[in-house]
Amino acid sequence: MVKATPLAIDIHNLSLWYGDFQALFEVDLQVKQGLITALIGPSGCGKSTLLRAVNRINERLGDYVRTTGEIHVLDQDILRNDIELAQLRRHVGMVFQRPNPLPLSVRDNVLFAHRIHRADEKFNRRKEDEIVEHALRRVLLWDEVKDHLGREATGLSLEEQQKLCIARLLPIKPTVILMDEPTSALDPKGTAALEELIWELHGDYTILIVTHNMAQAKRASEETAFMLLGRMVEHGLTEQVFLAPREKETADYIEGRYG
């Protein structure tokens, strides 16, 4: 099998149960490197569950969650038992629905992941300053916060908080960034700003984004995958999925017959 673009994420035959409830049924999904892929579908269709399986953050719930199948990130099977979750999550970052900056200063938030993954590298104030400035510039937040980097991050506006939550992933250079409805807590202006930012990151990072908002998927993604009731229904280029869906369910959802 020859692939045009290398795959960042390759999900094969993935099923997932919460206790007795099966949330995902033999899902397949291939996410190409450097692209923005949107996951759409009605509430409860399993798109967030699928997203949270890729960095295995859903395992926080304990034995209650059971997974079968395979997820490869850059050709590594991440569901293996000997996977170090800390390492996996270093390479697969996540942005949550509600902005969740840590109760630390803006500066310490940006440096948090860098510091825990720094290993033996020596502390270097100037290098940290560079990292902070670079990450905050990349998320278009530098000008707003540069004069009060020492302030509590939880005091920023929601839009700024969410940008900060993206900025703090950048210093550790993740391969993939998972985004779980990253704009659902923001107002229209914040949503627009964040979409602009996501588009800005495109190419440097592989982004898999769950969204409820179809206009957002249309505007801000290159490929779209549609899920329904725990199954993958259709996955293709965004224009194709929206303009000429192959499956009837996709067409119905896009036209707003349910969801």
Partner: peptide, 25 residues
């Protein structure tokens, strides 16, 4: 718990979560 989740999602180990996030908070 969102603080713990945020830190774990960045690859913090249990001890790092406790010392760097939970105890200061």
């Amino acid at each position: 718990d969102t603080y713990r989740e945020a830190a774990e999602a960045m690859g913090a180990t249990k001890w790092q979560v406790i010392f760097r996030v939970v105890l200061p908070a």
